[in-house]
Design a protein around this nucleic acid. Structure first.
Length: 112
DNA sequence: CTTATGACTTTCA
DNA sequence: CTGAAAGCCATAA
């Protein structure tokens, strides 16, 4: 792990099943609250083989919406995986939303 | 070093 | 509430 790329991948791999994380949240975890774009960029250009071991589908935007522009992985595709993860996905106006209050990953923070 | 792109976020009207 | 614009970070060329 030297570049943000590997760091983001490692972080996403730590997301527990049935939970989701936002780009901004991961960015904050890495120490750069403004690097949310870099996070999305990393997942966008990462190798497909790596995508198999990295739950990138658990990473969504701040609104809990799937803004995937990837034609290879549409919101429907992602939503299907999330549903398989026992995560409730809400379909609204052509976009898929996830209840962050319920599925947002808290990280390793031992907050009370 | 400069320019361009991106699966983001926040703010203003 | 909806739409548009700017900001910020990292990487590629």
């Amino acid at each position: 792990m030297k570049n943000f790329y590997d760091r983001i991948i490692a972080r996403v791999k730590r997301i527990p099943e049935g939970k989701v994380a936002t780009y901004g949240q991961i960015a904050v975890m890495e120490g750069s609250p403004r690097s949310a774009r870099a996070v999305g960029w990393a997942l966008h250009q990462m190798n497909p083989a790596l995508a198999r071991q990295v739950p990138w589908w658990r990473v969504i935007n701040r609104e809990g919406r799937i803004s995937t522009t990837c034609q290879e992985h549409t919101g429907a595709e992602q939503a299907a995986i999330l549903k398989k993860e026992e995560i409730q996905v809400e379909y609204r106006d052509g976009n898929y939303y996830v209840d962050l209050k319920r599925y947002l990953w808290r990280g390793d923070f031992s907050s009370s």
